[in-house]
Simulated assay, not measured.
Amino acid sequence: PIASIYVAPFEVSTGTEDPSGEIAASLTRIRNLHVTRDDPGIVLPFADPVARQTYTLTGTFDGTSLTLALGGDGDWSERYTIRPGAESRVVRSIASDIAKDLGLRMPGERPDTAVPSAAWAAYLRARNGMANMPSAASLVSIRAQLADVIESARRFPQANAAACRVDLALYRETSEMGYFESAERYCNQALILDRQDPEVHVALGGLYRASGQLDLALSSLELATSLAPFSTAALRELALTLDKRGDFAAAEVKLLKALEIEPNGWRNYHELSGLHFRAVTTHRPRTTTISKWPCCQTTPGRSTTSVRGYSESLIESDANFDSALNRPVTTTMEEP
């Protein structure tokens, strides 16, 4: 890791949409750059820092003029004009300028694969919906959103990969083979469009795992983590696959790495809690005691409500692990 950037919420005029999320998503394409929306005051006690240099990207936006500045280890600043219909082009330009300033590489994009701004924004909205533990009904709605995105932007590998993951989630919810077959089609199309995009390989790994092809799943997910070392989605999928193979210790390492990268990510706590519960109910050894983690260290004045809520629930679960062994264990549905 070369550098880490915290993208803070921008100051925007009343009624103006904050573009910081779209810029953060574009920055994640820069190799060797860790991008986070988490408050940097939240610190977990890991031996090594995520990156050698840390920056904070701040901005002000009045609906047309966007002023950005890199704080921390850098002093870069720039002003951009964003006109309707040109948002996606400006965001890509911002990511390229920041990569150049940091001496990092921004993967090239051929003109024929550029995604229209409206499609990119709709894709980000759908992806945000996927991040919020969606219900089956919400997944159906997100699926329709992504279908519209793909219809308007045929050469959009990330949208096809996201559609694959949504269909896999619906397959797990319903056991309907139609969703699995649709996931295969979306994943194949994503691979045709871009075999070097980490999101594509995260989707492919999930597809292989759902079909029971664990070796192929591991291969795809290890490639995803090598292409995007800071992708917590890839680390979580890799951990789930390792756990399904019975390698609890390796799965735990991947989830702890995801926590290091994204300490406010509720999915990281959710998957780690589930991993430890399965370890206890199947009498596998557990190497970490969640209740001893100082998960909520902060600097004065910073809020960690979300982290504290999840860590407290995990501490309670940890305290009940031993008693769980003495209760009848109900059978849970695994992935079909």
Rank of each mutant, 00 (worst) to 15 (best):
A3C: 08
P9W: 02
T14V: 11
E17K: 13
I23G: 13
A24T: 15
A25R: 13
D39K: 01
A47N: 09
A47H: 06
P49L: 05
V50M: 02
Q53N: 12
T56I: 15
T60A: 14
T60M: 04
D62C: 05
G63I: 13
T64A: 13
S65T: 12
W76V: 03
R79P: 04
R79D: 10
R83V: 12
E87L: 01
E87D: 06
V90F: 00
I94S: 04
I98K: 05
K100M: 10
G103Q: 05
L104P: 13
L104Q: 13
R105H: 15
G108K: 09
G108I: 00
R110M: 10
T113V: 06
A114V: 14
S117A: 05
A118L: 10
W120S: 14
A122T: 08
L124I: 12
A126I: 05
S135I: 14
A137S: 12
S138L: 08
S141C: 03
I142G: 12
L146R: 03
E151L: 06
A153I: 03
A153T: 02
P157Q: 06
A159K: 09
A161Y: 00
A163C: 04
R165S: 15
V166W: 00
Y171R: 04
E173A: 15
E173I: 01
A183H: 01
E184T: 11
Q189G: 07
A190I: 09
R195W: 02
D197L: 04
D197C: 04
A203Q: 01
G206N: 08
G206S: 05
R209F: 10
A210L: 10
Q213N: 12
Q213V: 15
Q213F: 10
L216K: 14
L216R: 08
L221M: 13
L227A: 07
A228M: 09
A233D: 15
R236F: 12
A239T: 09
L240I: 10
K244C: 07
G246V: 08
N268S: 15
V280G: 00
V280W: 01
T282E: 00
T289V: 13
T289D: 14
C296A: 14
T298S: 12
T304V: 15
S306K: 14
Y310R: 11
S311V: 13
L314H: 05
D318W: 07
N320R: 14
S323F: 00
L325Y: 00
N326T: 03
R327A: 06
V329H: 00
M333C: 11
P336N: 07
